[in-house]
């Protein structure tokens, strides 16, 4: 009796393993589908990196626009423009921004990857701007006053005293923004880009099995993001050690 039961158990487990194996093969091996996943990951990574760079450049520009003041202490027109831009971008879903850019504003541009990168760069720029602005404004006012009292111009005070401290403070948050950005690019399929996510759902449509391709997609995202966050943590520790403050 006992042997029989365990025999049945064994049979069930074996059967389950067989299904998983078939699923795995049809999802990743048949027709070299693992290559498609790799290519999808390539698209995701490329769009992430390009838009992160665009976002950083745009974010720095927007941050300085936003904090710019006239000599009488009032906000400049640049400050207003930056404020509105940041507000609009943060107040609408990124997938809507992506589709507006792809189907309307840049409809004549054929390079999907480029349009995708611009869309996410424009989006990320708004968030990066707020990160950098708050980083600059979190530096004690006394630091700038000490610089100015020595006769340094406001530009030099920014350059040698404020920015280095602000950058170091916001580095972890910027790294986090990079990771958020990578995950958000999973909507690139809306404009027909074969990124990692779109590849996963394409394989689902071919195999009529949802579990394995989607779990595979999740695992790839997770591993890549884990690598980046570990690198980031190391960079942070190194900076911390450089000057113990």
């Amino acid at each position: 009796m006992i042997l029989d039961v365990s025999g049945n158990m064994e049979g069930a487990v074996m059967q389950w393993f067989d299904t998983v194996k078939t699923d795995f093969i049809s999802s990743f091996i048949t027709g070299d589908r693992w290559r498609m996943f790799l290519q999808g990951l390539g698209v995701t990574l490329r769009v992430t990196f390009i838009s992160a760079l665009l976002g950083l450049a745009l974010g720095i520009l927007l941050a300085f626009m936003k904090i710019s003041k006239k000599s009488n202490g009032k906000r400049t027109v640049f400050s207003f423009i930056a404020g509105i831009y940041i507000d609009v971008i943060r107040g609408t879903p990124v997938v809507v921004q992506l589709m507006i850019l792809y189907f309307a504003v840049l409809a004549s541009v054929n390079n999907k990857m480029l349009v995708g990168s611009i869309a996410f760069g424009m989006n990320s720029g708004a968030y990066v701007a707020e990160i950098i602005r708050s980083g600059i404004q979190s530096i004690d006012r006394g630091q700038a006053e000490a610089g100015r009292s020595l006769g340094l111009s406001s530009r030099r005070t920014m350059q040698y005293i404020i920015i280095p401290q602000a950058f170091k403070n916001v580095l972890p948050t910027l790294g986090n923004e990079f990771i958020v950005l990578m995950k958000e690019t999973a909507v690139l399929g809306y404009v027909g880009l074969m990124d990692l996510m779109k590849t996963g759902s394409y394989v689902v449509s071919k195999t009529y099995r949802a579990f394995m391709p989607l779990i595979g997609t999740a695992v790839i995202y997770f591993v890549v993001i884990k690598i980046f966050s570990l690198l980031l943590a190391r960079l942070e520790r190194r900076l911390q050690k450089n000057d113990s403050r």
Partner: peptide
């Protein structure tokens, strides 16, 4: 250029932390 000739010492020191 005027401020170069006027040193200032603050209550909270304001040394450059970086």
């Amino acid at each position: 250029p005027v401020r170069r000739h006027m040193g200032m010492v603050f209550q909270h020191f304001n040394l450059f932390n970086n």
